[in-house]
């Protein structure tokens, strides 16, 4: 098979960024064999420093970067602009107010002729149209499967596997933290504060859990789906958002008695409805998944309802979506 070398930069080297390096290391040979592309990481940038090597960065250099040994004077933008490569992987923290630093990274990459693959929700939710236009202008692709459901494929499922279908609605659980909290509260009959504390202790909820439990994270993902699948031009402010902090064990019990569970559901449809709210889900509905799982039911005109369930978070899971996006650009 003819081999094409695909050079990659990873901007933002935290959980997900390192996950991407890890899966590329593990899968490089298999991908070369199966897809005819040789993935080579030529640059990595992080707040601690940057490394670049056109032959491919070494394991030692990666370890040194992680250990915080400063690696020279280049910046993230220098890597994106000046190191020759094909795909920029953007995995810096999500900022839903400004989109930065991801937005600048992505714009710079497209203008420098790089494809972009990202797990960062901020830039995609804030500037979807602008970024798509910029990508088209430079003949490049921008992919962001990891930003919505982690490992769970939604965007490529709709665009590729369900091509030709009209999509009427997408409903689902897009935040693993909320799902964990509601599942535990219902199963163990425990109050909200108690379960939240527990979730923080085991690393499922962040120290500041507000973005998750107030529904902001779900809403941002919904905006990405609205824009990328329904062709809307929505922003976060268009979403009606209610979080889960008011849910009581009593309410969960009443729901249970009536044959339901309560889940934080994101709901977008072709009429422009954009809503995040706790909803009653019949116990036998495919949307009733427990723990930290994510799930989405896609309602289409030809295929009917399709439901996907998967892990919404986790570095390797997010890296899986990023890897598939990279391969997708070349197939």
């Amino acid at each position: 098979m003819k081999q094409e070398t695909v050079r990659i930069s990873i901007i933002g080297f935290g959980y997900v960024g390192s996950g991407v390096a890890e899966v590329i290391r593990r899968k490089r040979e298999a991908i070369a064999r199966k897809h005819g592309i040789d993935l080579k990481i030529v640059g990595i940038a992080d707040l601690k420093g940057v490394i670049a090597d056109e032959q491919g960065v070494s394991e030692e250099a990666i370890r040194a970067l992680k250990a915080g040994e400063k690696q020279g004077d280049m910046t993230s933008l220098d890597i994106i602009r000046d190191v020759a490569h094909e795909v920029m992987v953007e995995t810096t923290p999500t900022n839903v107010e400004t989109g930065e630093p991801g937005l600048t990274h992505i714009i710079t990459a497209l203008e420098s002729g790089r494809h972009v693959v990202t797990s960062n929700k901020g830039p995609i939710a804030l500037e979807y149209q602008k970024l798509m236009e910029l990508a088209a202008k430079h003949g490049k692709e921008i992919k962001f499967e990891a930003a919505v459901g982690g490992a769970m494929p939604i965007i490529s499922l709709v665009r590729e596997n369900l091509a030709g279908n009209g999509v009427m609605s997408i409903k689902g659980i897009l935040n693993g933290t909320c799902n964990y909290i509601l599942t535990r509260m219902a199963e163990e009959d425990l109050p909200y504060e108690h379960v939240l504390k527990e979730a923080q202790e085991i690393g499922i909820a962040e120290t500041d859990p507000s973005k998750d439990i107030e529904g902001v994270d779900t809403a941002v993902k919904l905006v990405i789906l609205a824009n990328s699948i329904f062709g809307m031009n929505a922003t976060y402010n268009d979403v009606k958002v209610v979080g889960i902090s008011e849910i009581t064990p009593d309410a969960l019990k009443l729901a249970n008695d009536a044959g339901y569970v309560i889940k934080l559901i994101g709901d977008v449809d072709s009429d422009g409805r954009l809503e995040v709210a706790p909803r009653l889900v019949p116990k036998d509905d495919p949307l009733n998944v427990g723990g930290t799982l994510n799930v989405a039911t896609i309602k289409t005109d030809l295929a009917g309802e399709i439901t996907v369930i998967g892990k919404g978070a986790g570095p390797i899971e997010a890296a899986s979506a990023i890897l598939s996006d990279i391969i997708g650009i070349y197939s």
Partner: peptide
């Protein structure tokens, strides 16, 4: 209608069909 009132000043819940 099922009503659950844990006590004064506490949040109540009801399920309504």
């Amino acid at each position: 209608l099922s009503l659950s009132m844990p006590g004064v000043d506490m949040t109540s819940s009801a399920s309504v069909t």
